[in-house]
Simulated assay, not measured.
Amino acid sequence: MDTIVLLYSQEIQHKIIAALMFGLRTHDEEERNLEIFLLRQAVLQNNDTALDEMLCQEIYKKVINCRGGWGIAGTPLHAAVSTGHLSCLQVLLAHGALVDSVDVKAQTPLFAAVRGKYLDCVLALLGAGANPNGNPCNNCSPVLTAAREGDVEILKELLQHGAEVNSRSKVLVWTSSARVSSGPLYLAAVYGHMECFKLLLLYGADPDYNCTDAKLLRSIKQPKTVLEMCFRRGCGVEYIQLLIDFGANVYLPTLIIEKSTKQNEAVELLLRERANPKALTLHCRLAVRQHLKKIDKIHRIEELEMPTRLLNFLQHKPAPSTAL
């Protein structure tokens, strides 16, 4: 109990009262301001011992999932992951904290952990059953955030736990006269995160993003494929080659030829691809991968009972060299 008293002061009382101005909280959250604040303070100070002692008391158990704090009001679990305090996160989960609780912007603790790049917290939340897609009411998603930030390890964990690889932002991006729904693949390309870009394609990202969604096509008169956006953004040839290898429709983009050498190389690559049909083996690979994506098994290719050479081929890995 002494630990709890130390966390509280006269100055803090005024801050707690002022916090009521932020609204968007439930009646219980406003009634239990002090208890909520004390829980958050224990978390923010990374005092897992005090936090555990407090949550053994009924008065604090009642507010374990209540929101508080300055700015974007969130639960104690949000406070733990936003600061990377794994031990406090584990204590909260052990005492029954809701793993998919939301703050006032519909952001889940997992979303906050991804945004903060705390891999250990991401793993703990996913292990506790957190929804890898976050909350549908949030404008963004964990996958979109990881792709934009170039955090390939976190992105891989999300995808392995079933996150939607073609996650859509609710915010439309305006480019020239076109509206574009920015997805993970688009963001990875724009921000130059090659490893994330390739990982997304390996997990079934649509290389013709923006041009295969009927609902989006009804609202966008001239949709832009990822391939065309790569040309417009001056992405390297390696991005174009990957999209082609993963089945992008090379006849969809409107070519804009610029004086950049890199851009000209990319255009030449696309023109060669348009003039030469794919080999039958490549069509077979695309067909197998598309089927695995359809039955939600694309992330389990390595478990298929087939020779290693074929597994490598399906995963776009180079064939192992044979010793002479």
Rank of each mutant, 00 (worst) to 15 (best):
I256R: 04
K259W: 12
P253L: 11
G234V: 00
C137T: 09
L252N: 09
N33I: 08
R233F: 11
F22V: 12
Y239L: 00
L282S: 12
Q90M: 09
V288N: 05
R300W: 12
S87T: 04
V165N: 00
A19L: 09
A266W: 02
R32Q: 13
V250I: 14
H299F: 03
T49Y: 08
G69C: 04
F37Q: 09
P132K: 04
Q10W: 15
A50Y: 09
A106Q: 11
A50C: 15
H95N: 06
V143E: 01
E30V: 03
A188L: 11
L34F: 05
L77M: 08
L6Y: 10
T49I: 10
I257C: 04
E157N: 12
A163S: 13
L227N: 03
T261Q: 09
L185E: 02
N276G: 00
V190D: 11
K224F: 04
N65I: 02
T261G: 12
T3G: 15
V152T: 12
N138G: 05
Q57V: 04
L280D: 12
G129S: 03
K262C: 05
R289G: 07
F231K: 05
Y60F: 15
P109A: 10
P132D: 11
G96I: 00
S182K: 14
P320A: 02
N138C: 15
H78N: 08
L201Y: 01
G23C: 05
S182M: 14
G127R: 13
A79E: 15
A50V: 08
P76Y: 03
Q107W: 12
K215A: 14
V122C: 10
Y203A: 13
H95F: 04
L55W: 06
G192Q: 01
L282N: 09
P132Y: 04
T175F: 10
V237G: 05
Y186K: 00
V226A: 01
C230L: 01
N133Q: 06
G71S: 13
G204D: 08
H27E: 15
Q290L: 07
N47I: 11
E153Y: 03
L34K: 15
L286T: 00
R67I: 00
T261H: 09
K61G: 13
C66I: 07
S321P: 04
L314N: 06
R274H: 05
P76E: 10
V267K: 05
A287G: 01
I256G: 13
A189F: 03
D120I: 04
G234L: 02
E268P: 03
T26G: 10
L51Q: 01
L34S: 13
G127W: 06
V226K: 11
P253Q: 07
F37A: 08
